[in-house]
Design a protein around this nucleic acid. Structure first.
Lengths: 117, 117
DNA sequence: TCGCTCTACAACTGTGTGGTGGTAGAGTGT
DNA sequence: ACACTCTACCACCACACAGTTGTAGAGCGA
């Protein structure tokens, strides 16, 4: 159902910046961990803080970045804040990247085991 | 044909770092422009320098980063160096991101045009 | 009302890195 | 051999940002 319609070719400058920004948001280990933790379902900032063994401030900060990028959504619930994945495509992105990594590692493996002349 | 097999769930630390690094590599406007330029086919560093209106040093540097990440391949050809896309998944990644961006913009558009109570 | 918990914000510091200038080295033509 | 072109490497500067500390404010229970 996902369109995956082709991108305009001479990529316009503003779009380049948007794409880069998007990748940059996901390109942070802490944020990837947060997203990974939220894969099971919504969690509060406190729960995330405990699971990732991080400081509350840092978690809040990164969740803020992810929220501003529209990747997660924050929902107040008393004093707590429930964080939910708002854009599932991030996981598809991760899977694609993992696929590429697997391929590279496989090539290296082939070279190191059989391909050495 | 792409596996897109699911990722291990409690994402192991080293994998998190690898994924983050990968995204970070693509999360740079100049590098996205380089990849976009290489979509038509192989180009030399000089040609890329001219097309992107950048300095030769900068292009060489970013191509180096992309090459080390296994996203492009460099091939010496006399004094010139031909740069080729080595991992097509980057374009799939961009398409996915663009799809997400489109969706967000569409939602904003709806809110701003009809949804206002 | 008072105190406690939960979260977000501001200021600061250290680090990573993008861009530039300078330059070395390889390859080519004369 | 010499001059020229093409590319990569190095050192440097400037800026962005991740992480920390301190703290303000909102909500809840006693």
């Amino acid at each position: 159902m996902s369109k995956t319609q082709p991108i305009p070719h001479p990529l316009p400058e503003p779009l380049v910046d948007l794409i880069a920004q998007r990748f940059r948001v996901i390109g942070e280990p802490m944020r990837i961990k947060l997203l990974d933790a939220l894969r099971d379902g919504p969690l509060t900032v406190g729960e995330l803080t405990e699971r990732l063994d991080a400081t509350q401030q840092n978690v809040s900060k990164h969740i803020g970045v992810l929220a501003q990028a529209g990747i997660v959504a924050r929902e107040k619930e008393g004093t707590r804040v429930r964080c939910v994945i708002a854009d599932d495509t991030v996981f598809e992105l991760c899977e694609l990247v993992c696929g590429g990594l697997r391929e590279q590692v496989a090539e290296l493996h082939d070279v190191l085991s059989g391909g050495a002349a």
